[in-house]
Simulated assay, not measured.
Amino acid sequence: MKLENPIDKDKKIREEIKLIVKATKGRYDYRRVCTTLRNKGLVVNHKRVLRIMRQEGLLCNKFKTRSRKCSSYKGQVGKVAPKLVNRNFKTNSPNKLWLTDVTEFRIKGHGNLVIHSDQRFHYQHSTWSSKLRKLNIRQSMSRKGNCLDNSPMENFFEILKQEMYYGVEFKNYEQLRKEIELYIKWYNEDRIKTKLNGMSPVERLCNILCIEPPD
């Protein structure tokens, strides 16, 4: 049995790391890069991956910018729905539970920026609740000062901004909208999560349902 040359193996690992970083647009830290390598059959120590990424200047810098927090709670302005979720996020199929939140994206070069107010103002409004009723969707709200049920959506917005928005200049709304749509597709179908044993959300769901992931 012929052993692989250590120099050739190191070169192969470096090239694979470069491909992973390029494919993920620099959004993966060394731990996710290490997991992706293992998914490809290359078992590499995470310290080695970290060292190589430092040497090649490939370390993720998407999470250096922190978003500012804003509060615009307007008090009760409409109907407050009951709390149905209670941090139970487990479902056995898609479209059983939706989370929603409000976040702000600023497009450089435009002065007519529209700023969204706090989520409770929007989701108590009659136009929103009537639209949900027409679509036969039940409404659920956290109590003021207790937003644990909404935290997964807030965390997603934070990750989205860190990985595809901060540090990138968007020329117009259409470009921003397209990039957000592409990111959401990538997040669901390709972005691996350590909490999901190195699988993407779609791969994890298909694994649970024992079906093949979509191409």
Rank of each mutant, 00 (worst) to 15 (best):
L37K: 04
R31M: 12
E15H: 05
L19I: 07
E16W: 03
K18D: 04
K62V: 14
E56Y: 09
T35R: 13
R38W: 15
K11N: 01
M53G: 07
L59I: 12
H46K: 15
V49H: 02
K47V: 04
I20M: 09
D29I: 05
N5W: 06
K47R: 08
D29G: 15
K40D: 11
V33I: 15
L37T: 09
K47H: 13
R27S: 15
G41R: 09
G26C: 08
R32G: 01
D8H: 01
C34H: 14
E15W: 00
N45Y: 08
T24Q: 12
I17S: 00
L59C: 08
R48I: 11
R54F: 07
K62T: 15
I17H: 05
L50M: 02
K12T: 10
R38L: 10
V43F: 14
V33A: 06
V33Y: 03
T36I: 06
K22A: 15
L59R: 15
G41Q: 07
Q55A: 11
I52Q: 06
C34A: 14
L37M: 13
L42D: 09
I52F: 10
E15V: 02
K62G: 12
D10W: 02
L42K: 04
V43W: 13
L58Q: 08
G57H: 04
K12I: 03
K18C: 06
E15D: 09
E4F: 00
E15L: 05
T36N: 06
K47W: 04
K25C: 06
R32T: 11
H46M: 12
D29H: 09
E56A: 06
K18E: 10
I20W: 00
R48P: 05
D10G: 01
E4L: 01
G26H: 03
Q55M: 10
A23F: 04
K22Y: 08
I52R: 04
L58S: 05
N61A: 06
P6E: 01
D8S: 01
C60E: 12
R48H: 14
P6Y: 01
P6Q: 03
K47Y: 05
G41L: 11
D29N: 15
A23N: 14
K11D: 00
K47P: 08
N5S: 08
Y28M: 13
E16T: 06
E4G: 00
L50E: 13
T35E: 15
V44S: 08
K40L: 12
T24F: 02
C34R: 13
E16Q: 06
R31N: 12
R31H: 14
L50I: 04
L19T: 11
Y30D: 05
G26E: 01
V49I: 08
E16Y: 09
D29Q: 15
K47L: 04
Y28I: 06
D8Q: 05
A23Y: 09
G41H: 12
G57K: 08
V49L: 02
V43M: 09
Y30G: 13
K12H: 08
T24E: 10
G26W: 03
C60P: 14
V43K: 13
L50V: 02
L58Y: 08
L42N: 03
I52Y: 03
R14T: 04
L58E: 08
N61L: 10
N5F: 04
E4K: 03
C34D: 11
G41F: 14
I13K: 00
A23V: 12
E15K: 04
D8N: 01
V44P: 00
G57Y: 09
N5D: 15
R32P: 01
R14Q: 02
G57N: 12
R54A: 06
L42M: 13
